[in-house]
Design a protein around this nucleic acid. Structure first.
Lengths: 163, 163
DNA sequence: TACCGATAATTCGGGTCCGAACGATTATTG
DNA sequence: CAATAATCGTTCGGACCCGAATTATCGGTA
């Protein structure tokens, strides 16, 4: 999953191509590892937990957000899940077609669409989420316990840095 | 970009839906923030640096890997970049069509395809990568300096945990 | 009440993204 | 040395992903 070259090998190769340009290798390492980690964790969870329910990562996130906050507007799901409304429209259509959620236009504001889970959707999440969280625990167990809150904080700092 | 609900609000909502089930909220926070962070950083870099060159994130990663390690086999690019060979084939076709890289069959092993940058590809990376790294620095600057190496280490732990 | 700027969700087009199946090539084995 | 297994890159089908354009609705204003 991770690349086969070490950071030092990569760094010396970069130096040989950019000469004495000022580069921040620590910043490089953080963003590079951020994506490797996110990708690795996502693929792992998709294979171990989500595959048996035939759910993609994004579909699961959508179900989770709706499950916690239903009824919730489309814009809220997109903001909470971190993807665009354009992406969400397609995923909602998929999940609605499979009978896991419903869309209905708001009576208070005709522009809004309210999304809720169906009973089948709630049954699925009640069964799936504990398994998902167990696997999350398996993965993060490899971080020493004291560092866990700091890990979450560092990631929050990164999120805030892009705003 | 980030969800508008705090972790505590989410936690109490989850508890109200799963009752007294044993859940690891710290693990939840880490994986959740991991994806928000990766997504936020990716979108930010795509808008600030990559958009002007009309490159997607994945296309940029492919160019970077080839730039550092050329000539490199297709399987190597996929492993280094963290995506599947199926994904890579399409991206390579796009970048080859735009004249940034070339593919040639290996004479030593007829199954392998070796990828190299064209002069135009090397010019692009020599100009683009310093800008990219500068933006990486801007983002990670919000992490206190002492925590930077630890941030990279925690992310590496997560990667290793999925292997 | 007719306009008009702002807001919401969807559609559209092009580019990822992956697992599975496929064809080609190389390695292995009896 | 022929049959078989293993490996590599590509193709295929279906789903995701985003920015921009589109359609519909709301709120305010004269």
């Amino acid at each position: 999953m991770a690349g086969q070259h070490t950071l030092n090998e990569t760094e010396s190769e970069v130096v040989s191509r950019l000469g004495d340009l000022q580069l921040d290798f620590e910043a490089m390492a953080v963003t590079s590892n951020l994506f490797r980690a996110a990708n690795a964790v996502r693929n792992h969870l998709e294979r171990t937990v989500l595959a048996k329910a035939d759910l993609t990562w994004t579909a699961f996130v959508v179900l989770w957000v709706v499950w916690i906050w239903e009824p919730i507007e489309t814009r809220g799901i997109a903001a909470e899940g971190g993807f665009s409304k354009a992406t969400l429209s397609g995923v909602l259509a998929t999940l609605e077609g499979r009978g896991f959620l419903t869309r209905e236009r708001s009576v208070a504001d005709g522009r809004l669409v309210l999304v809720s889970l169906t009973p089948a959707g709630r049954r699925l999440m009640k069964k799936l989420f504990p398994e998902f969280n167990q696997e999350e625990r398996n993965i993060t167990r490899h971080i020493s316990t004291g560092d866990l809150p700091q890990a979450a904080q560092i990631l929050r700092d990164l999120i805030r840095a892009t705003e």
